[in-house]
């Protein structure tokens, strides 16, 4: 199937600029004339994933594929991985340190929100190797 492919780097060291890849994707999708409500859903889910890459892994890549009827966002990192994915998906579960919590993260709501705001949310992970989250949003 024909698709438009975009790639963005996510800087793993910088908390302040976390979210810039999402902002760029949002601007691109908007510029392309995609329905604003769909753009918003993509952005909300991707933002949570991007933040996770910054605080739990060391950054990574965001690959975005736009099809005529859906947007697929793949967030790929080579961080520490998630041991128990089912547990990580539970609302409120978080391994964030106190320092991170001070910054306002670590409510354990990121992954549940990603699931809620996408049509499909697939988390694949291997401890010590990294994590890939795939977010699929159908377009209206």
């Amino acid at each position: 199937m024909e698709k438009i492919h975009l790639e963005f780097d996510v800087d793993g060291r910088n908390f302040v600029s976390a979210g810039t890849a999402t902002a760029k994707v949002k601007a691109c999708l908007k510029e392309m004339g995609i329905n604003p409500d769909d753009v918003k859903r993509v952005a909300i889910a991707m933002y949570e994933g991007e933040i996770n890459m910054v605080i739990h892994a060391n950054g990574g890549k965001a690959l975005v594929d736009i099809y005529v009827d859906k947007v697929v966002v793949k967030l790929i990192d080579t961080g520490k991985g998630i041991a128990d994915i089912n547990l990580a998906m539970k609302p409120g579960y978080s391994t964030a340190s106190d320092d991170i919590r001070q910054l306002g993260f670590g409510a354990g709501m990121g992954l549940p929100n990603m699931k809620k705001h996408s049509d499909e949310c697939i988390v694949e992970s291997e401890v010590g190797k990294g994590t890939t989250v795939t977010l699929i949003t159908n377009l209206h």
């Binding site: 024909e2 438009i4 736009i66 099809y67």
Partner: peptide, 13 residues
């Protein structure tokens, strides 16, 4: 229509 919009987006990209 959506397909036309997409085709243009693709061409532009």
């Amino acid at each position: 229509d959506r397909q036309q919009v997409f085709n243009k987006m693709l061409e532009i990209q």
